[in-house]
């Protein structure tokens, strides 16, 4: 298992280099002076043309392309992501500010949708053809087909505007920054995001469970005289988990990168909102770094998927 994980990580390295190369290429091709995002813009404004040229030399911006890439890469690896053009602050600080909000929202959504989705999908499969199964199937279909912004707006107007139970949006009020202060703000976006994801997980786990239950080893387990719960959960659900893990894993990057629409609807100060703002403001360095971050999240997610499926299914470990 250890060597399996190590090998998967080693495979990632060339991919990471290639992707960061493409991102850097993008950065170089964007309009504007490269030096402007290497240093805070307000500092840049006070410098004379000669000083700027000296700085360019000092930062290695006059070096050949590959060397520039190398300098940029070592900077990124040390946590120096450059500066945002719009806000003039270090991109690293923007990440430190926005990422926790996004992780909080997605973390809860993944947790709830996985638990509830697997539970409902399993029930649905075990009661195949029953009224429970049919109504869950209809609800699931609605869940995956209603766009999330619509659902978000409905929830917002009902719970926040009409009933006034919950805040309309945002995350922190000045001076209130414990988790319990933010909890009311968290409820609606987590609810909407989880519900959309639950529908998918449910449909997927139902199908996977039905497939698992039709396998011959289920009959073997029943022929051993095992009780129903053990046959269904230990032999059925356990093998049905692999495809479900893959589905959830593939959603991870989108969620870590910020669920753009939900964050927009609920004014959630996460990476997704930041991304929209950066694109609008043509803040290329920031857009590129968020893109790089999303790609990283994607690779990380695929690593997690591989490790989890290997843990669940011993056959995967062999390859």
């Amino acid at each position: 298992m250890g060597t399996f994980i190590l090998r998967r990580i080693l495979i990632l390295i060339p991919m990471l280099v290639a992707i960061s190369f493409l991102i850097y290429l993008g950065l170089e091709l964007t309009p504007g002076d490269a030096v402007s995002h290497m240093i805070p813009p307000d500092v840049a404004n006070t410098l004379s043309a000669e000083d700027l040229e000296a700085l360019r030399e000092q930062l290695g911006l006059n070096q050949p392309f590959l060397l520039r890439f190398w300098i940029w890469l070592t900077n990124v690896l040390q946590g120096n992501f450059g500066h945002s053009l719009e806000a003039g602050v270090a991109i690293k600080d923007i990440f430190l500010d926005r990422l926790p909000a996004t992780l909080e929202l997605s973390g809860f959504a993944i947790l709830f949708s996985t638990i509830i989705g697997c539970f409902l999908g399993t029930i649905s499969a075990l009661r195949r053809g029953s009224a429970t199964d049919n109504s869950l199937t209809v609800v699931g279909m609605l869940g995956v087909s209603i766009p999330e912004f619509f659902f978000g707006l409905v929830a917002l107007s009902f719970f926040a505007l009409h009933l006034e139970w919950l805040p309309v949006g945002g995350r922190l009020m000045p001076g209130y920054d414990s988790f319990w202060d933010r909890a009311p703000h968290l409820v609606l976006p987590v609810l909407v995001l989880s519900l959309m994801m639950t529908a998918g997980v449910m449909r997927y786990s139902r199908a996977a469970m039905l497939d698992a239950l039709s396998r011959e080893y289920i009959r073997t387990a029943r022929a051993k005289g095992l009780p129903g719960w053990r046959v269904n959960l230990l032999h059925g659900l356990r093998t049905a988990l692999t495809p479900v893990v893959v589905l959830i894993g593939f959603r991870l990057p989108a969620l870590i990168g910020g669920s753009v629409i939900i964050e927009l609807v609920f004014q959630w100060p996460g990476l997704g909102n930041e991304f929209i703002a950066a694109v609008r403001g043509q803040d290329y360095p920031l857009v590129m770094m968020i893109a790089l971050f999303s790609v990283l999240a994607m690779l990380l997610a695929s690593l997690i998927i591989d490790v989890l499926t290997a843990l669940i299914d011993p056959r995967v470990r062999l390859e």
Binding site: Y217, R219, A223, K224, G225, T239, D313, R315
Partner: peptide
């Protein structure tokens, strides 16, 4: 009774055992 008094084996041992 199943598995203890009357036990059963199946045609295809490839699929009759749980792979995990």
């Amino acid at each position: 009774i199943r598995g203890s008094e009357i036990a059963m084996i199946f045609q295809d041992p490839m699929t009759a055992l749980n792979p995990v």
